[in-house]
C-alpha cells in the first residue's frame, strides 16, 4: 500500500469516527460532550483558516480574532434585525470578514515581518474597541443570540445537528485547502514562501497573491465565528480581543505551521488538554504553558511534525 493511499484510509477512518461520535456519546449518556466536541471543530476550523494565512501564505497575522469574533457579531447583529436564516447570515459573516480583510490586508501588506505582525494587531484592536463601544452590541457583556440560526431543512436547535454541520464545514474546508495547495495558485504561494523577489521577477503579482490568501483565510474565520456564535449562544468581545488572536496562533504553531492538519491538531491538543486538566486542577493553564514550552524547545515543527504528517 502506498503512503498516499494509507493516508486516505486513515483520513476516511477518522472522518467516520467523527461522524459517529455524537451517537456514541448519546449512547454513553455523555451528551454534554457533544457541545465540547462542536467547540473543538469550530476552533479547528478557525485555526486551519489562520494556518492558511501563516503557513501557506507566509504572513504572520496577529489579528485573526477580528475576523473570527467579527463573524460571530455579524450573526448576532442580523438576528437582532430579525434575520434568523443561516443561509443568509452565515454567507454575510463570510462576506463581512472577507471585505474587512481586503481593506486591512491591502494596507498591511505594504509592511513586512514584525511590522506586519504589529499592524494586523493594530487593526484587530481597532475593531475590538469599535464593537465594544457600540451599545447596540452589548458593550463588554457581548450580544446574546435569541436562538440558534435556522438552517432549513436541518434543525440546528439540536446539538447533534450543529455538530454535524460544523464537521461538514471543517471537512469541506480541509478538502478545499488540499486542492488549493496543489493548484497553480497554491504552487505560486509555495514559491512566494521560498523567495518573494524571485517570484516577483518571474512576473507573479506577489502582493495580490498574498492578499487573496489573507482574504480567503479571513472569510473562513468569519464562517467559524458564525458557528461559534451559534454554539455559545452569544457573540462576546473576548473573541475579538488580542489574546484570542494569540490563542489561535498558538494552536497553529502547536499543531504545525503549514501542515494541512496543523490547525486541527493544535486546536484538538490545546482545548482537549484544557478540558482534561480542568477536571483535576484549577490551574490548567499553568500545565498547558509548560507543555507549550516543551513543544517550542523539543518539537520545533509542531505536533504534525512529531507525528510524521508531512502533508501540505
Amino acid at each position: 500500500m502506498t503512503p498516499a493511499r494509507r493516508g486516505n484510509l486513515v483520513e476516511a477512518g477518522v472522518l467516520l469516527a467523527a461522524i459517529a461520535l455524537p451517537l456514541i456519546l448519546e449512547a454513553l449518556g455523555e451528551d454534554f460532550y457533544i457541545g465540547f466536541a462542536t467547540r473543538l471543530l469550530i476552533f479547528a476550523l478557525a485555526a486551519t483558516s489562520l494556518n492558511f494565512i501563516v503557513g501557506y501564505g507566509g504572513m504572520v497575522a496577529f489579528g485573526h480574532a477580528a475576523f473570527f469574533g467579527g463573524g460571530a457579531y455579524v450573526v448576532a447583529f442580523l438576528m437582532q434585525a430579525g434575520i434568523f436564516s443561516a443561509w443568509i447570515a452565515w454567507p454575510l459573516a463570510v462576506l463581512a470578514a472577507g471585505v474587512a480583510a481586503l481593506a486591512i490586508g491591502a494596507l498591511s501588506l505594504r509592511t513586512r515581518g514584525v511590522y506586519f505582525i504589529m499592524i494586523t494587531l493594530a487593526f484587530a484592536q481597532m475593531i475590538y474597541y469599535s464593537i465594544v463601544s457600540l451599545q447596540s452590541a452589548g458593550g463588554d457583556d457581548g450580544l446574546p443570540l435569541e436562538q440558534r440560526s435556522t438552517l432549513a431543512p436541518f434543525d440546528l436547535a439540536s446539538d447533534t445537528t450543529l455538530y454535524w454541520v460544523a464537521l461538514a464545514t471543517l471537512a469541506a474546508c480541509l478538502i478545499a485547502l488540499k486542492r488549493l495547495a496543489h493548484s497553480r495558485y497554491g504552487r505560486a504561494l509555495a514559491g512566494l514562501r521560498q523567495n518573494e523577489q524571485r517570484m516577483e521577477a518571474l512576473g507573479y503579482p506577489v502582493d495580490r497573491l498574498k492578499l487573496v490568501c489573507f482574504v480567503i483565510g479571513a472569510g473562513v474565520a468569519g464562517l467559524a465565528g458564525a458557528l461559534l456564535a451559534n454554539q455559545n449562544g452569544m457573540a462576546s468581545p473576548t473573541q475579538l480581543y488580542w489574546t484570542q488572536s494569540g490563542m489561535l496562533l498558538v494552536m497553529v504553531i502547536l499543531g504545525g505551521v503549514g501542515q494541512r492538519y496543523g490547525g486541527v491538531l493544535g486546536a484538538l491538543a490545546l482545548l482537549g488538554l484544557e478540558e482534561a486538566l480542568g477536571l483535576t486542577t484549577e490551574y490548567a493553564h499553568f500545565y498547558i504553558g509548560l507543555a507549550l514550552l516543551a513543544v517550542v524547545l523539543f518539537a520545533p515543527r509542531g505536533l504534525a511534525g512529531l507525528a510524521g504528517l508531512r502533508a501540505r
Binding site: 501563516v54 504572520v60 496577529f62 515581518g113 514584525v114 505582525i117 494569540g246 490563542m247 496562533l249 498558538v250 504553531i253 502547536l254 505551521v257 484549577e282 490551574y283 490548567a284 493553564h285 499553568f286 498547558i288 504553558g289 509548560l290 507549550l292 514550552l293 513543544v295 517550542v296 524547545l297 520545533p300
Partner: peptide
C-alpha cells in the same frame, strides 16, 4: 536565550506560554 535565533512564531508561542504560566502561578 534559546529563542533569539528562532523565528518569530516560536517566540510568540514560547512567550505566550509564559503568560499562561505566570497568570496561573500568581493565582496559585
Amino acid at each position: 536565550r534559546r529563542l533569539y535565533l528562532r523565528d518569530h512564531l516560536a517566540q510568540v508561542l514560547a512567550t505566550f506560554a509564559l503568560i499562561l504560566i505566570a497568570n496561573d502561578l500568581v493565582r496559585m
